[in-house]
């Protein structure tokens, strides 16, 4: 990869996620459908916390933290991959402290306004949702996820579109990376592609990636592809997977219903 090759880097990131998903761990071995449902439930519950429920929300961090441990994946990998999205998540509630200035509680002598708490709550919600989504795709191959979606009766066309788009993005990034390399070799000292070459660069990229995508599609047609990726009708979800998912779901629901840190604090402080 050349010194400046964001497309190559993006392609490698996609490959890396695929490699992570192909690893073997307890979480990887869990059937995709319960994993998908649990992730959706987790994200829904996390997002449903009231805007001042910072302490109650903090307990939700345990689930992805536990998940990353089970999967043998460092959370740093997730944060590194999401370094471009996380600032956007942080920016969502950035104006809350200016609009909501009433003190909610005091930290020592320092008044903490509702705006600061709601900003932190929004931030945590975003971070938790993203880490959970990343954990799902880092422990489940996309094909398995799509099969799970089909089992949920997600429309066939949407599922196929999702898979083909993912494959096409890979092709597009590979072609873009090759072209960037070829360009940089003949334009030493330039950072990126000069604006005067963008038109022909993008045109060529589109043509080349379409050619490759067509060849890939031919190859799929030759092997009986009829618009739907083959499912595995032979293996259902084992009862143990459902049991584990149910236990997790109940724990998530309890964490949503009760402010566990406040309850623990009350018990410890005898309040």
């Amino acid at each position: 990869m050349s010194r400046f090759d964001p497309t190559g880097e993006a392609g490698l990131s996609l490959r890396m996620v695929e490699e992570l998903a192909a690893a073997d761990s307890l979480l990887h071995r869990l059937s995709p459908l319960p994993k998908l449902l649990l992730t959706v439930l987790y994200i829904a519950l996390t997002l449903s916390f009231p805007k001042y429920a910072l302490s109650a929300l903090s307990v939700m961090a345990l689930f992805p933290a536990f998940g990353y441990q089970l999967a043998g994946i460092s959370p740093a990998v997730c944060f590194r991959r999401m370094r471009f999205i996380l600032p956007l998540v942080c920016a969502v509630g950035i104006f809350n402290p200016f609009f909501d200035r009433d003190p909610l509680f005091f930290l020592g002598n320092f008044p903490v306004s509702g705006g600061i708490v709601s900003m932190l709550t929004l931030l945590l919600k975003g971070v938790f949702a993203l880490t959970a989504a990343f954990l799902l795709i880092a422990t489940t191959p996309l094909e398995d996820l799509c099969r799970a979606l089909r089992r949920l009766h997600c429309p066939r066309i949407l599922v196929s579109l999702l898979l083909l788009t993912f494959r096409y993005i890979t092709v597009l990034l590979e072609e873009a990376s090759l072209m960037t390399q070829a360009y940089s070799l003949r334009a030493p000292g330039q950072r990126g592609v000069h604006i005067s070459a963008w038109g022909s660069f993008l045109g060529q990229l589109l043509l080349r990636s379409m050619d490759r995508a067509e060849s890939l599609f031919d190859s799929m047609l030759m092997r009986g592809f009829t618009g739907e990726f083959p499912g595995d009708s032979g293996s259902g979800t084992p009862p143990a997977a459902w049991a584990a998912a149910l236990i997790c779901a109940v724990m998530m629901a309890l964490a949503r219903m009760y402010d566990i840190p406040a309850m623990l604090g009350g018990i410890i402080l005898g309040g």
């Binding site: 695929e18 998903a21 191959p141 490759r212 060849s215 890939l216 592809f225 595995d232």
Partner: peptide, 17 residues
């Protein structure tokens, strides 16, 4: 252009499935 699945095995079972 022929191998479009993540692993060799995934690619091999694609056709028969």
């Amino acid at each position: 252009n022929q191998m479009f699945m993540p692993t060799v095995l995934d690619d091999m079972v694609f056709g028969p499935m």
